[in-house]
Design a protein around this nucleic acid. Structure first.
Lengths: 187, 187
DNA sequence: TCGGTGATGTCAGTCAATGACATCACTCGA
DNA sequence: TCGAGTGATGTCATTGACTGACATCACCGA
């Protein structure tokens, strides 16, 4: 136990999500989020770069996880096989507990242009990271970019479908199905 | 001739571009842009929704132009042929005069995360518009989305290359070359 | 016990963005 | 010709995001 309640960042995330869902992104001030989390607005900005970033806290973790899975793929795996491994590795992030959070989060994001912008750049950053990972595996630049783009597209589509799917469908199944669809398309 | 100098929006665009290039986006205030354009900050926000939008003023026009070209394609044209027509239609927008502006604009955008976000959402909006245009032509949803995505990708890649190319290369040539590359890839 | 550390609070300030209201050249119809 | 719009702009006040500088104070390690 420290001097303050621990996990201020976590409380801020919870508070922000709750308030965004309740009053909308524009209808919520940083001061209100901080209040609910029991800190000041100044502390909010010490944990998150801006008012949007609080909804994208997990993205660096997810990216790191995918890049690691990409690097861990067998050396003789094809670019697309490596990307597939990275995409499937995301299943470990989104369990049943996260699904409810993900749904509320997605609802807020899709209804707020500012947040959609942020999400787009996160996806772009992820694509760049995967591209770099493929380049490190010796993949040709053109192929790397294309494979990374495809991988992120598969993740995006699957994530959306997972959110819309019944509660008993795990995200792994959706990812598998999307990958199968892709294979059928390109065959 | 009106009561004020005409084309305030145009002057604001010029002023913004010059100041962003000179001092950077963050180092420029809306008040400074307005000053240079001979108006007040309030007037800036009457012409542009926010500080970023002033660099994306032409995007609605470009989108409309592409959508019209898409609609004007022969009814029996394939989805990809229609998209190709839309992509090639952009050549009418970017002449030699626009190239210099485009270069400076691209330099500012790539060096400013906030502006990159805005550019990404513009591209996403364009993709949606082309998708809708294809749907109106009776194209199946999956195919429409994919074709639109591909078309925007071709435009993006071509635009980047055109900016980096020597001054005597017209954008039309670059678009043609990119489309040829795509055909070779998918063959 | 004491100085360093780190997370937080406090305060003042800048600047983007918006609403309400005033201004005033220009236009058009009575 | 006059007077009531009209539309683009200016002025003013306000909110709220974000930042820098400095203070605080429990904890930890020597």
């Amino acid at each position: 136990m420290g001097r303050w309640e621990p996990d201020a960042a976590g409380r801020l995330r919870e508070a922000a999500m709750a308030l965004y869902a309740e009053r909308g992104y524009d209808g919520t001030t940083v001061a209100e989020i901080a209040d609910r989390a029991g800190v000041t607005a100044r502390t909010f900005f010490r944990h998150f770069a801006d008012k949007r970033e609080v909804l994208f806290a997990g993205s660096e973790q997810l990216e790191r996880h995918m890049v690691e899975a990409l690097a861990a793929a067998p050396p003789d795996a094809s670019p697309m096989e490596a990307v597939t491994a990275a995409v499937l590795a995301t299943a470990e992030f989104f369990d049943d507990i996260r699904r409810d959070y993900s749904r509320r989060r997605a609802a807020v994001i899709t209804s707020t242009p500012e947040l959609r912008e942020r999400e787009l750049i996160k996806m772009a950053t992820l694509t760049t990271a995967l591209t770099d990972g493929l380049l490190a595996r010796g993949v040709a630049p053109d192929v790397a970019a294309l494979a990374a783009e495809t991988g992120v597209a598969v993740f995006r589509v699957s994530f959306e479908r997972w959110i819309a799917a019944p509660d008993d469908v795990p995200i792994g199944d959706v990812l598998q199905a999307t990958l199968k669809n892709l294979a059928a398309l390109t065959a």
